[in-house]
Amino acid sequence: MREITLTVNGERRKAMVKDNELLLDVLRDKLYVKSVKAACWRGECGLCTVLMNDRLVKSCLVLAVEADGAEILTAEGLVKDGEPSPIQKAFIEKGALQCGFCTPAFVISSHKLLTMNPNPSDEEIRSFLSGLICRCGTYNQIIEAIRGAQKAYASR
């Protein structure tokens, strides 16, 4: 076991981890960041996606020890003073979810996309999000949600 330090959604957190533990499991089970979903554990569904040092990664493919010292941002971290961020509001307004299980991963990934490019084409959105799976099939509504939040990112 060794101690790692992560900055999770702006807060410094410490955890004791084994070398073979995945960042996904440490985030969920030791730091209780429950928006990070565990579904396939093999990098296919993308629902454990987080921003690590401002880069999107699937946390089931990252060792917790590798992330020592890293900054992690998840959907929880987008909420400011109890107020959902523009992209989160847009997901609700456009009904870009059905069961909601994939929503945090799509939210954090859409946030990253709009931060880099506030005016992506439909094709750029589809390509950027192609590593995430929504089994309810709300892909078109997700694109609408991204369109709905665009303005807020353009003016940042």
Binding site: K18, D19, N20, E21, L22, D25, R28, D29, A38, W41, R42, L63, V65, E66
Partner: peptide, 18 residues
């Protein structure tokens, strides 16, 4: 939660970062 299935866990090893 890892259910003890090999699909979800890694075998034990020592991590080195030279």
């Amino acid at each position: 939660m890892s259910f003890g299935s090999p699909w979800f866990t890694l075998p034990e090893f020592t991590y080195h970062k030279p």
